[in-house]
Design a protein around this nucleic acid. Structure first.
Lengths: 246, 246
DNA sequence: TATAGTTAGTGTCGTTTCTACACCTTACCA
DNA sequence: TGGTAAGGTGTAGAAACGACACTAACTATA
């Protein structure tokens, strides 16, 4: 394998959202600093999935690479939402220790470009760069490493804004999904409750959400009809809105 | 004056929009490379207003600094919209020459964080860092330096998206403005035509656009009533939308 | 001082969308 | 075959939308 030269002052952080049928989740990675002489853990906490980029790589390619390494998937929803470069963003005590241990200069300023991603699968690699990976409900996220709480917060803001105006909810669902699943996505992300009948009337107007002949299987109640999203129809029928919020 | 250390791999580029009553404009800066031996100009073109940041400065502070240097204003609308870091973004021939002449390494990769700004004044400094500054109608912008055409394009996309959902149009107008002025802003930015009566009905529903008792002066026709935007009212009355575009 | 020129400002009607609200249907399972 | 659990549907009143044309107010100038 050929080593490609790293650019060590640019990184991407990917806020990877998932949905388990109940809650919005985010993918986090264990960070444990082991004292080399005693072998004991100095601290352990969690980070977002981030990565440096290669010198000849675009930031978007780097973000897709992170996603591919975690999931094996290539066509994943990905959106650059904000960039973080505060001079103190890596300067908490544990962060400095971690960087030093990793052979990096904790005083060096690193720009991190934030992407958020919506995954339709819970199937992720369990180990990434030798570290454990897991889903954590967004509501249960505690204190994260670096400025990752802030990055997560901004990712949520970007997600909520985007989902209000663009059809992206089903990126968190399998290709074929039920309207109840979709409604739940909106309810969870926007912390709101929606009326089932009104929601369905709205969906019926969106010609790009197309009912199939298939139904749910393996449920112990009336199975729901499954829908698919058609990007072609969406691109054809979308119109521009002018409606700054009252 | 104390020299603060520069961070030479992070920069901000500010896409500064203005409105002259007719068109959307963007602020551009002359870039002329003078051959040191012959004294002749090797090329001349235009750039956006960008700047490196100081080592202890946040990127937002740097963007505000650029705006302040150009306008003397401090409370200007500013929005971080996208970050540009393509490996080849500074590698056009003229760009390499310019960087070399400036004592910088053209092979070094520089991340640029894009901000767009809306200015309510046409009063700008005429010279900035020894370079001429001028307003150019967006429709008449030719080929710019570096990747600045792309940055401008993305800024326009961000502006159009934002203005559809958030009340920011009047950031391009004086504190007190007429509804016709406001309508023109929307028409120009969204390349659309709006019905005057329907526009005004919509405005009437937005309680944060408040009519004053004042009228235009110095116009040779019926003077229009002036309105002001109230941020307090806006923050109180805004509600969340859920309406992904049909 | 009357008039021409210019922009401001306003109402209605038919259509679409919004909101609130309750019951029957379908399938599985015990 | 009856209980359980979610799926799926319609209506009516209110609000917003889009299309459409005339009068009002002010200035300049003849």
């Amino acid at each position: 394998m050929i080593k490609r030269p790293l650019n060590n002052y640019i990184s991407v952080d990917c806020v990877i959202f998932g949905y388990n049928g109940q809650e919005l989740q985010v993918l986090l990675v264990d960070r444990t600093l082991t004292n080399e002489t005693t072998g004991e853990s100095e601290f352990t906490d969690l980070t977002l999935t981030g990565n440096h980029i290669y010198e000849d790589e675009t930031i978007e390619e780097a973000a897709y690479r992170v996603l591919f390494d975690l999931t094996g998937l290539k066509n994943v929803f990905l959106d650059q939402f904000k960039t973080f470069a505060h001079p103190d963003r890596l300067k908490k005590e544990n962060d400095r220790k971690w960087l030093l241990h990793d052979g990096r200069d904790p005083d060096k300023r690193i720009v991190s470009i934030g992407y958020f991603s919506l995954l339709a699968t819970q199937n992720i690699t369990l180990e990434w760069k030798g570290r454990n990976v897991k889903w954590v409900p967004v509501s249960e996220v505690g204190e994260l490493a670096f400025d990752h709480n802030q990055i997560l917060e901004e990712a949520l803001i970007a997600l909520r804004n985007k989902i209000k105006h663009e059809p992206i909810g089903f990126e968190l669902l399998p290709e074929k999904f039920s309207l109840t699943q979709l409604q739940n996505i909106y309810e969870v992300i926007l912390s709101t409750e929606l009326d089932k009948r009104n929601f369905r009337k709205k969906i019926a107007r969106m010609k790009y959400l197309i009912p199939t002949d298939e139904k749910q299987t393996g449920v112990s109640h009336k199975p729901a009809r499954l829908y698919v999203f058609s990007r072609e129809v969406y691109e054809k029928t979308k119109k521009e809105l002018f409606d700054f919020t009252v």
